[in-house]
């Protein structure tokens, strides 16, 4: 049994995929971080002080964790969702009544989205109160603020998709605020966002595209830069 495992681990196929051995020595542990795409953002060694939970409260990391949950559940939800009126609403009902674990998926997606907004905000506060925005990390703070706005936009664009009264009027109230912008700019922006003067099918499609493609891509790019700069500025 152990022999067979050894042979697999030593096989060329295995070694072509994992260029390091099992992390059982400090060397191979370092290699694990070094050669692994997902771990390479981390240094091979970290200060013991900085991995204490209360040092960062793990808020940024958990926000990212929620983002992953949202991507996974979101992708699954997309399989059952049509961004059209009124099918969008009936698809919610179908999720509830006929899709296996459909309600559960939607709940996960919904609560994770709300939690992410809250956690990102808390993360921002933590960074401020620990003074972590100070040079040389000024620009990463700016990216963080943008990411906070992006998180809210992600949540907000998703809010319309179930096409119930809550969605419709939540979005109507929000987009009415845009109209307050002076010189007719607000009206133009609102029209562009909704694809019309009121929240209708065009708005649903636009919000769907924003929610499922545009804003996530922006968020992923910004997150990559954000994490990379954390690492470059000496963080974990």
């Amino acid at each position: 049994m152990k022999n067979a495992l050894d042979r697999i681990v030593r096989s060329q196929v295995w070694r072509s995929i994992f260029r390091h051995g099992l992390p059982d020595s400090n060397r191979s542990r370092a290699e694990t971080v070094f050669y692994n795409f997902f771990l390479h953002l981390h240094p091979t060694k970290v200060r013991k002080r900085s991995i204490k939970f209360t040092y960062t409260w793990g808020l940024g990391g958990m926000s990212f964790g929620l983002f992953i949950v949202l991507v996974v559940t979101g992708a699954l939800l997309m399989l059952y969702y049509r961004p059209s009126v009124p099918q969008a609403y009936w698809d919610m009902k179908d999720l509830q009544f006929v899709v296996s674990s459909g309600t559960f998926l939607r709940n996960m997606h919904r609560w994770a989205a709300h939690a992410m907004v809250a956690l990102v905000f808390l993360h921002m506060l933590r960074v401020f109160y620990t003074g972590s925005y100070k040079p040389p990390k000024e620009f990463n703070w700016v990216i963080g603020v943008v990411l906070f706005v992006v998180t809210i936009l992600l949540s907000y664009t998703g809010y319309l998709l179930p096409w119930d009264q809550l969605s419709f009027w939540g979005i109507s109230v929000g987009t009415n605020m845009i109209h307050a912008m002076p010189f007719g700019v607000g009206d133009k922006i609102a029209f562009l966002l909704l694809g019309g003067n009121i929240v209708g099918e065009n708005a649903l499609v636009r919000f769907y595209v924003l929610h499922c493609f545009v804003i996530p891509v922006v968020a992923i790019v910004l997150m990559a830069i954000h994490f990379w700069r954390v690492r470059k500025d000496g963080g974990v």
């Binding site: 009936w90 009902k93 179908d94 509830q96 009544f97 006929v98 119930d164 009264q165």
Partner: peptide, 17 residues
Amino acid sequence: GQGPATTYKESIGKVAF
């Protein structure tokens, strides 16, 4: 009643919304 529903209570339709 609520045609798409697959539980007794929901299909009767005396549910919120």
